[in-house]
Computed example of a mutant assay.
Amino acid sequence: MKPSVLKHPQHGGQLNVYTQHYGISQALWLDLSTGINPGGYFKSDVPDNVLRDLPHDDDGLQQAASDYYGSDALLMVPGSSWAIQNLPQVLLKHRPSINKVLLPQLGYSEHQQAWLASGVMAEFYSGTPSAAQLKTCDVCVLINPNNPSTHLLSKDTVLNIAQQLQQHSAWLIVDEAFLDTRPCNSVTGENEENTIVLRSLGKFFGLAGLRVGSVIACDSILTHLNSLLPPWALSHPARFIAKHALQDTVWIQQTRLRLQQQANKLAELCEQVLGGQGGDAWRILQTDFFVTVLCESKNMTLECHHQLCEQGIYTRLLDHQCGIRIGLPNDRSQDWQRLEQGLKQVASILKKETTHVDA
């Protein structure tokens, strides 16, 4: 077996790392590493003046985002990751006594990195934080649905957590980057005083390259975040495309349905190929954007990831190397067939290795 890549990309993408390691041309890879909608909003013709002129704030983007998210308490930012990186210092300005942040045990690692860099102690929870944990924290971070564990919280559960935290003036940060397909679970329109909601156009709209996100929060938080933004924080083309995407209600409704159907298809494929191997070797978990395959051992995870790479199929190796995340293929039947064959090859190889060990 070829040695594993020494340093895997942190968030998927960066395919060149694997093309060099496995000697497979980039054009021949099936890249399923990011969880981004492969059929994104790619239908905007950008006029020449948008490419030429400096952006301006009164172009209708703010209103389009407010209408889409159901809140006027909103700030457009250059990607939700920008907000994740800057929120610790903003909240520490509001409350210098912040000592503890609650974070998911398995989740988008940028949250943990930002808080630890700010010198705040982290405590971790699995699934949903307990009442005891909520009583003793100063900030709680929810990722809904969780990336990559897929754990999804109802709106009522999130609001209940916000109310528990409000009793001792603690903050709640809700990362809803993957929630566009499930608006009934979102708290963007609730305007809880202690709640900060992060949204992105990168996943559902498939526009990660534009770096457009939103923060929904109280005025004092938005004012402080706004003071940290540089001039023209969002490019003119990014603002133009984002506004049109947020206003295209027909495309939004069709895409919600399509992503849910494709995610069900992907989960069924993984269950059929991997789940049928028996035992507890695999756990198949699902969102509307990706499927997470949890493996019983680190060695199995690395082998699964490696064998797919050998076939030019790039999936996301989870941070703790406990599984892989598989994004949705394009609508093309050959991509689905290729993934099916790749998974069957992995299952066959690992079954032989397990049988050999048992013998």
Results as ranks from 00 to 15, higher is better:
P3G: 02
V5G: 03
V5T: 13
K7M: 09
H8P: 07
P9D: 12
H11W: 08
H11P: 15
T19V: 10
A27M: 09
L28H: 08
T34D: 06
V46S: 13
V46L: 08
N49Q: 15
L51K: 05
R52Q: 06
P55K: 00
L61Q: 11
Q62H: 12
S66K: 02
D67T: 10
L75G: 12
G79H: 13
S81P: 06
H94L: 13
S97K: 01
S97E: 08
N99M: 03
K100F: 11
L103T: 00
L103V: 00
L106Y: 03
G107H: 09
E110H: 08
W115T: 01
M121V: 07
A122P: 01
G127S: 04
T128P: 13
S130E: 00
S130H: 12
Q133P: 11
K135C: 13
T136E: 00
L142E: 15
N144R: 01
N144G: 10
N146P: 00
S149F: 01
T157A: 07
Q163N: 06
Q164G: 14
H168D: 05
A170I: 01
A170Y: 03
E176M: 04
E176K: 05
F178V: 03
S186N: 07
E192M: 05
E193N: 04
L201G: 10
G202V: 12
K203Y: 01
V212E: 08
V215A: 07
L222Q: 14
L222D: 11
T223L: 14
P230M: 00
P231D: 09
P231G: 14
H236C: 11
H236R: 14
A238W: 06
A238N: 12
R239V: 06
H244N: 05
L246I: 08
Q247H: 03
W251N: 15
W251E: 09
R256Y: 04
R258N: 13
R258I: 01
L259H: 15
Q260V: 15
Q261A: 03
Q262I: 12
K265I: 07
E268K: 13
E271F: 14
Q272Y: 04
G279D: 12
T287I: 00
D288I: 08
F289V: 13
V293Q: 08
E296S: 02
H305Y: 07
Q311D: 09
G312F: 02
Y314I: 02
Q321L: 09
I324N: 05
R325A: 09
R325Y: 12
R325N: 13
G327T: 09
D331H: 13
D331V: 05
R332F: 10
G342K: 08
A347I: 12
K351P: 15
V357Y: 10
D358M: 10
